Amino acid sequence: MADQIPEGVQTHIPNVARMYDYYLGGKDNFPADRQAAEKVLEIIPEARHGALANRAFLGRAVGFLAESGIDQFLDIGAGLPTQNNVHQVAPGARVVYVDNDPAVLVHGRALLGTNDNVTIVEGDVRRPGEILGHPDVRAAIDFDRPVGVLLLAIMHFVPDEDDPLGIIATLRRAMAPGSHLVLSHAAVDARPEASDGVAKVYDRASSSFVGRTGKEIVRLFDGFDVVEPGVVNLPEWRPEPGTAVPYRNIGSYFLGGVGAVSDGG
């Protein structure tokens, strides 16, 4: 990645997208990212499992939506491209990846620029109106038809003062009936004593971490009809048959769910 560092990128500051890449076992990260990620792993050793579970949840949820007939996706806070991206899980679908990180944009365009069905756009989840109104988004996504909107492991970097409920409501109002929201969010219920330590690491990174309880995360689905099995720890969301589901019965630690927009939505 070093030969693709865009101007202005500060490699000495831990970056949440590159830290996530490190958790996943990727190579698109720098020493500052690895050091910060290792500090998180010292506090929560299962953080790497959470990142991998989140990636697997993306695959299952997008596969579910594709099988339901959705053929266009808006992935906000997409992060660095890795294996089993949305366009790979749903081949032939139109996909818009949105991120506010210049390194993510450069790297993503280098890897995905030849795919006519894939668009990569600069945007910030905290300003959803700008994303929805972006000309490249409007050219790729027909909001009069069902769309899958993905907010995976991004809302726990959005503080309450930026109105996460309002952000999601803005997105919901733009989604036609039959559309679905896919959302995942780290929860603090199972390890409340670890939240402050993790937050202190991310306070020195590109985005601060916001610890929320399971009840607070469920509220993010207000206005959607949540599909079965509800908002659950990621490995428990429609696991593949025969798959062992770890960390059962320890409380909420990394929740995910899929919410549908009804005709009255």
Rank of each mutant, 00 (worst) to 15 (best):
N117L: 11
P91Y: 08
A199H: 00
A32M: 04
G113Y: 02
E46K: 14
M175S: 09
A47G: 11
D162V: 10
G178A: 07
T11M: 13
V198Y: 03
R34D: 02
E7L: 01
A78T: 07
E46H: 13
Q35G: 05
P146A: 04
R126Y: 06
F143E: 08
E122G: 14
H180Q: 11
G79H: 01
M155D: 12
G211I: 03
R126F: 04
L150N: 09
M1L: 11
N249K: 15
H156V: 00
D136Y: 12
H134T: 09
L150G: 08
R219Q: 15
G69L: 07
N84H: 15
A194K: 03
R145F: 00
G214F: 10
H180D: 05
A244M: 10
F209V: 00
F224N: 08
V9S: 01
P14R: 04
G25E: 14
A176R: 05
L112W: 08
V149T: 12
P45L: 10
T243H: 07
E122R: 11
A2I: 01
E46M: 15
K215E: 13
V104K: 01
P239K: 12
N84D: 15
G25C: 13
D3T: 15
H107A: 02
F157G: 08
A194G: 03
V137N: 13
P135W: 02
G129V: 00
M19R: 01
R248V: 12
R145W: 01
P235I: 03
S208K: 12
D124E: 11
L234Q: 12
P146T: 04
E46Y: 11
V125S: 03
G211M: 00
E42H: 12
P102W: 01
L105K: 04
P159N: 13
G50L: 14
L52D: 05
P6D: 00
N84K: 14
P91T: 10
L165V: 12
G230K: 11
S184A: 10
Y247Q: 12
R55E: 04
V137A: 10
D142G: 04
I217V: 15
H180L: 05
K200W: 01
P14Y: 04
G113L: 05
H107R: 03
A140T: 14
I131W: 02
P14Q: 11
G108P: 10
P6F: 00
P246Q: 08
R219H: 12
P146I: 05
A190P: 05
I131R: 04
K27M: 02
T82L: 01
I76G: 07
Y20R: 02
H185A: 03
V158W: 10
P246F: 06
E240R: 14
N249H: 15
D222R: 10
S68G: 12
R212M: 07
Y20K: 02
V98W: 05
I70L: 09
I168P: 07
V40N: 13
D21V: 01
P146C: 04
G257M: 09
T82C: 06
M1N: 05
A37G: 11
A17E: 01
A186Y: 02
H107C: 00
H134W: 07
P102S: 06
F57Y: 11
M155R: 10
